[in-house]
């Protein structure tokens, strides 16, 4: 006899929500990331600092007490709080505070722009390499490996050296340095997604490669790529400062933290604190970006 216990087909429908599955709050991925971030006080705190630095850079003309270029032969290398210069002056008598605030503009630009460019180029190449067949993959990835083989700072120095100094050339060289790494991250993420069942299901329902990439791959690759990109910002700031320090990036008299560090270094024994200021600015900015990036990584690392 197969007559089962009276449990049988009761009036309870199969899909009913009595199991306590959340019916009220349906949270998408980005919503849940936002929720986690809102509750992460460390990341929020450092995020505020990053925001302040960015705002200071954007509104530099309104905040800075002096012009960053205004020199004064008498007022050179003055200490903290000297005659209306709260953070002193540099070796040409320019106001340190103003130069640091203006310098943030270039440093942040040098931190963000190469990363954005590298993300776009490297990400695209990576997705193509990850999704395309073996030949395209090999061609793209081996080319990237060639760049990857050099230490990043060395590569940046070499490219900048070959192209000459200046902000634009600095951005180009840093973009070139970051592209292979970005490409690799995107390729790995794509290759992982590519073998999942829902990609096969999409193929089975008749979708073409481009449609599949647009609907099913990009959204899932974006996460890891974004996380990696955010961690590159601080590296980019440091590298750009390094280039400027070596005279390969920003040229005088532009206010740039790396360049300031380089020119002030000769006054190390006269005004040690003043010399350290650009370095401190670089340090704080890059560490804040790093910590925020870490927080974002943790928030995005939701297994869903």
């Amino acid at each position: 006899m197969n007559k089962p216990v009276a449990l049988a087909v009761a009036e309870i429908p199969a899909d009913s929500d009595f199991d306590g599955a959340p019916a009220t709050k349906v949270r998408g991925y980005w919503q849940s990331v936002g929720y986690r971030l809102r509750h992460d006080w460390v990341t929020l705190g450092f995020g505020v600092i990053v925001l302040l630095i960015v705002l200071a850079a954007v509104f530099a003309p309104l905040i800075a007490p002096f012009s960053p270029y205004a020199q004064s032969i008498i007022g050179r290398l003055k200490p903290f709080g000297w005659r209306g210069h709260p953070w002193g002056t540099d070796e040409l008598g320019r106001d340190m505070m103003s130069r640091l605030i203006y310098g943030g503009r270039i440093s942040l630009m040098m931190g963000l722009v190469p990363v954005v460019i590298a993300t776009m180029i490297g990400g695209t190449l990576g997705v193509i390499g990850g999704f395309a067949g073996k030949v395209a993959n090999t061609a793209i990835m081996r080319t990237m490996d060639v760049f990857y083989a050099f230490p990043s700072i060395l590569l940046a120095v070499a490219i900048s050296g070959a192209m000459g100094g200046g902000i634009v050339n600095g951005i180009i060289s840093l973009s070139l340095v970051f592209t292979p790494a970005m490409c690799r991250v995107a390729e790995t993420a794509t290759a992982q997604v590519k073998n999942l069942d829902y990609i096969e299901a999409a193929r089975a329902s008749g979708a073409g490669t481009l449609t599949i990439i647009r609907h099913h791959v990009l959204g899932n690759v974006l996460g890891p790529v974004f996380i990696y990109a955010s961690s590159l910002v601080s590296v980019s700031i440091l590298l750009a400062s390094g280039l400027s320090f070596l005279g390969l990036g920003v040229q005088p008299p532009e206010p740039d933290w790396g360049l300031m560090l380089s020119t002030l270094r000769q006054s190390l024994y006269v005004d040690p604190l003043g010399c350290a200021l650009p370095g401190i600015a670089i340090f704080i900015t890059s560490i804040c970006f790093n910590l925020v990036s870490d927080g974002i990584r943790a928030a995005m690392d939701v297994r869903i």
Binding site: D197, Y198, A201, S205, N220
Partner: peptide, 29 residues
């Protein structure tokens, strides 16, 4: 001819609401 896969973490796109996953097939057709 269509295929139903084993239920696993990878059988549905985690970043897509299920109605979009279901509508995807008709859309690409």
């Amino acid at each position: 001819v269509q295929m139903v896969f084993q239920d696993s973490y990878s059988s549905l796109n985690p970043r897509m609401p299920v109605q979009d996953s279901v509508a995807f097939g008709p859309m690409v057709n």
